[in-house]
């Protein structure tokens, strides 16, 4: 019997992620491009994923788009919210989990799952950059340190500079003042991570944090944030090289379920 290929695309605010899977369980191709909603990133990432497999769009049985730009992907059979997709995708990556912390480019979400991996509750941040990838980007620009190096700098820090404000704009001024006082950049970065962790942990506690906890979204690549969150929540947090692809995996799995349903005529 021929394999059934489905595609999930997660169009975030700063990046587009695509996953093609077969029969709802096998990862066939994944791609990430750092071009998000409103760019040609979504088309490029799908093209690259298809080229990997030497496939045409018509070989894909169903497509689900998710993320901030989900409505703009016209080839999708259906859109689903990124929270549902991250819940599905994280269970696929990590196995049975109860709490997901998803920090993306412009928002932070915490999802609680039940024993069957079904979403039980969720919480999203308000229209505010605090506790999001955008906050870290602003800090990266102020400090002239690449975001990719934030985790390493955090690990090397001997102490933690206090960043009291959770507002991205005020925190920027605070960081500039710390630099002017000669504070070590590593300590400032550790302080920034603590500031994000405090904010997100407060959000997580609103719906309750139950192990096993996993982190998804682009910010999960920053181990400084992961460690700060572990300290703040007093739990171990699982991360994976595929954490950033959780939404795309979830969308691809939902696309497979959608295909099966449409075959049954539901």
């Amino acid at each position: 019997m021929d394999k059934v290929y489905t595609l999930g695309i997660d169009i975030g605010s700063t990046s587009s992620k695509c996953a093609i899977i077969s029969d709802g369980v096998n990862i066939e191709s994944t791609h990430i491009i750092y071009k998000g909603a409103g760019t040609d990133g979504m088309d490029i990432v799908v093209k690259e994923a298809l080229e990997d497999l030497n496939m045409e769009p018509s070989d894909i049985k169903a497509i689900i788009s998710t993320g901030y730009g989900r409505k703009s992907f016209e080839a999708a059979d259906k859109t689903m919210s990124e929270l549902s997709c991250h819940a599905k995708g994280a269970s696929f990556i990590f196995g049975p989990i109860k709490t997901i912390i998803d920090i993306g480019g412009q928002d932070a979400k915490v999802i609680r799952l039940d024993d069957n991996g079904q979403m039980q509750n969720f919480v999203m941040n308000d229209k505010c950059a605090a506790g999001t990838g955008r906050f870290l980007e602003v800090m990266s620009n102020v400090l002239h340190v690449s975001l990719d190096d934030f985790g390493k700098y955090d690990e090397e820090a001997e102490d933690k500079a206090p960043i009291s404000s959770t507002c991205a704009v005020f925190a920027e001024s605070e960081v500039i003042s710390q630099l002017a006082r000669g504070q070590d950049v590593r300590s400032i970065i550790k302080g920034i991570h603590q500031s994000v962790a405090t904010r997100v942990a407060g959000q997580a506690k609103r719906i309750g944090v139950t192990p096993k906890v996993a982190m998804t979204g682009g910010v999960s690549r920053n181990m400084g944030i992961v460690r700060a969150l572990e300290r703040e929540l007093d739990v171990d947090i699982a991360v994976s090289d595929n954490s950033q692809l959780a939404g795309a995996f979830g969308a691809a799995i939902f696309a497979y379920e959608y295909y099966l349903k449409s075959m049954k005529g539901d």
């Binding site: 901030y68 549902s84 928002d107 979403m119 039980q120 969720f122």
Partner: peptide
């Protein structure tokens, strides 16, 4: 969901409500 009288962009509300409906 939070709304105000100057809102022109409802994307966060859209994501929350779509997730809620899916849940």
């Amino acid at each position: 969901i939070e709304t105000d009288q100057q809102m022109t962009n409802f994307e966060q509300a859209r994501t929350s409500l779509q997730t809620f409906a899916e849940m």
